[in-house]
Design a protein around this nucleic acid. Structure first.
Lengths: 343, 343
DNA sequence: TTATTCTATTAAAGCGCTTTAATGAAAAAC
DNA sequence: GTTTTTCATTAAAGCGCTTTAATAGAATAA
């Protein structure tokens, strides 16, 4: 066993103050004379002192941990979307001296068997819920009265504590870009509308049309029920073509579907962007490899995770609910899948 | 604040024993009468008692945490290879009542700024290092004398504490499959040979040839220096073609490169598998989407993570180094990228 | 029978912090 | 000059466990 390092006692002795003072300084609690504070901080540095989380947690009855929960399929899917959100969270947590406990739950979640251990043991001071989490889980967390923030999702019964990318704005940016290029007949492909992000993007599509004095045409909107995968994009595009819809541009609810739709359109002899311009949403890696590279709306995933953590920290510190949503910025990224409509 | 749940005191009272006995039962330490043990366990259940990690950690001077370290680029790359390893670890950790703290370090790692917080604060009882981690980091951990296991990588200076997939066997399985189909001229494409897995796969390729009484031909082996990405696969295949190498089958060091090589070969008019059979390694998702779907060697990533955790647990419990490598099983998965050579 | 060894249980100390009430000194108010 | 208030610091209790030495009783050996 190695030496276990300095304790608060060592620091107190070296700084010639009581242990209480050291603690007070380190947590900037009470009013401490500037000179005393300096003395303590110097001793801390010299001894390379780090408070033991266990001791701190026992005394203050806080765990110093935050739980990060998402479904296993979200976490291990090919596009590292939630992975990056997690990284943003983890990075931000360093500033707050919190540790993140990441765990996944199955989509077919059952309280009795699948409840994360840190919830059973109450070993977290708050939780982050990323993406579409099972209803039984979010309801359980509400019951626990545990501080929590939803990321890129919000359960039906619930208004606040949500951090989202600005889907409405993103959709409008995409549409304005297409308008600016001269497009007027713009189709929309979406998926699972129970997901608030997808629904908001469709809403943005419609609002943008209205703002441009255009009437949303039902036959230009295709929302497959299932999901939002590349395959779903293929199917949706096929349906659009099958019913002979006429459009010069396509806005899809995410990049995965955009890539699928692009494949399908090319297969049917449509050239991108000459015959059809396409704009996606999310800015996933695969979009940059598409042929042609996909114009899209960039979402800052790391910032999404960081913003959620900050919000949770605030809730934990103030012990208050913080209703209302937080929106993180989005940005148009123009690549080669968009161009003016062919004359 | 919610009620904080039962403590060991409550359990002791209800079971009419001392707190020490409860602790002893829960950690199966001393010899306890069966009847007493039952009484304690019953009380634990009735009160839904869970020991506080903080209290336990403070008293036993263990953190109850395991650190999981990998580089950020490994973690957030498109293929969820390490993500799945992590999931295997996290799942397995539940059995041992340990929590996993996942963190990433930059590839350009510097001790002063990038050392994971849980190492500075000594807040983990051991660490798992996944994939190619910076040398400065692994050396630092050796110095700390902290129990640790490398996953799918081992640093230069170090023999033991490594968990790997069985690369040598996997390569031989791939080669035998090609032999069985009738191939004799089999090329190899590899990348970064400083990675032990890639080196072992090349070694397996050579051994398999020798076992089949064939001489490895230098001009059939192409190992690009840089990396092991899809693009590297394209380049390697191009070099192979450029020098007019003649082969009916191709074994690549991983699926990513296999996919790249496949693209390249198709571009040059070679039909897969009619003109060239291809076998990859890893069984990544993208391989199933390739045209044709890729024959490959499946690696059980979850098991890799689980095995590493078990090994680490053993090291922590026995307080001993466990030198020697552990190999997890691999398996041949035949899809449509392999066929007998054209007559 | 008495001494010895086992077995099962517990008392008590201690892990390293936080937190609150108490204290003393200095400043402000009377 | 005395009382009150404010400021800076600390003593001491306690958070909920683990661990070790001590103890008492039962079983075995002498």
């Amino acid at each position: 066993m190695m030496s276990q390092g300095a304790t608060i006692k060592d620091v107190a002795q070296r700084a010639k103050v009581s242990e209480a003072t050291v603690s007070l300084v380190l947590n900037n609690k009470a009013s401490i004379r500037a000179e005393t504070r300096q003395r303590v901080l110097k001793a801390v540095q010299q001894l390379n002192y780090h408070p033991r989380q266990a001791a701190r947690g026992l005394a203050s009855r806080k765990s110093g941990n935050i739980g990060f929960i998402l479904t296993d399929d979200h976490f291990s899917r090919a596009e590292p979307f939630y992975t990056k959100i997690f990284l943003g969270t983890e990075f931000e947590s360093r500033k707050f001296k919190y540790y993140i406990l990441l765990t996944t739950v199955p989509r077919a979640f059952r309280i009795e068997t699948d409840l994360p251990r840190f919830l059973r043991e109450r070993n977290v001071d708050g939780v982050l819920l990323a993406g579409h989490v099972p209803n039984a889980l979010s309801e359980h967390i509400l019951k626990l009265k545990l501080p929590h923030v939803f990321i890129d999702f919000s359960p039906r019964h619930k208004q606040g504590n949500v951090v989202m990318m600005d889907n409405l704005l993103g959709a409008k940016l995409a549409m304005r870009h297409l308008f600016d290029l001269g497009h007027r007949r713009i189709a929309f492909i979406g998926g699972d509308l129970t997901h608030p992000s997808i629904a908001a993007r469709l809403e943005g599509y419609k609002q943008a049309l209205l703002e441009a004095q255009l009437e949303p045409a039902e036959d230009l909107i295709e929302t497959v029920e299932s999901n939002t995968t590349t395959d779903d994009g293929v199917h949706a595009a096929e349906k659009l073509l099958a019913r002979g819809a006429h459009f010069t541009a396509l806005f899809t609810a995410n990049d995965a579907m955009a890539i699928g739709a692009m494949q399908c359109l090319k297969q049917h002899g449509r050239q991108i962007p000459v015959d059809v311009s396409i704009v996606g949403f999310d800015d996933i890696e695969a979009g940059t490899h598409a042929q042609p590279p996909l114009t899209t709306i960039r979402v800052d995933k790391e910032e999404l995770g960081a913003a959620a953590l900050r919000r949770l920290m605030e809730m934990i510190e103030t012990k208050k609910e913080l209703p209302g949503k937080v929106f993180t910025p989005v940005e148009l990224v123009v690549r080669q899948s968009t161009a003016p409509p062919a004359a």
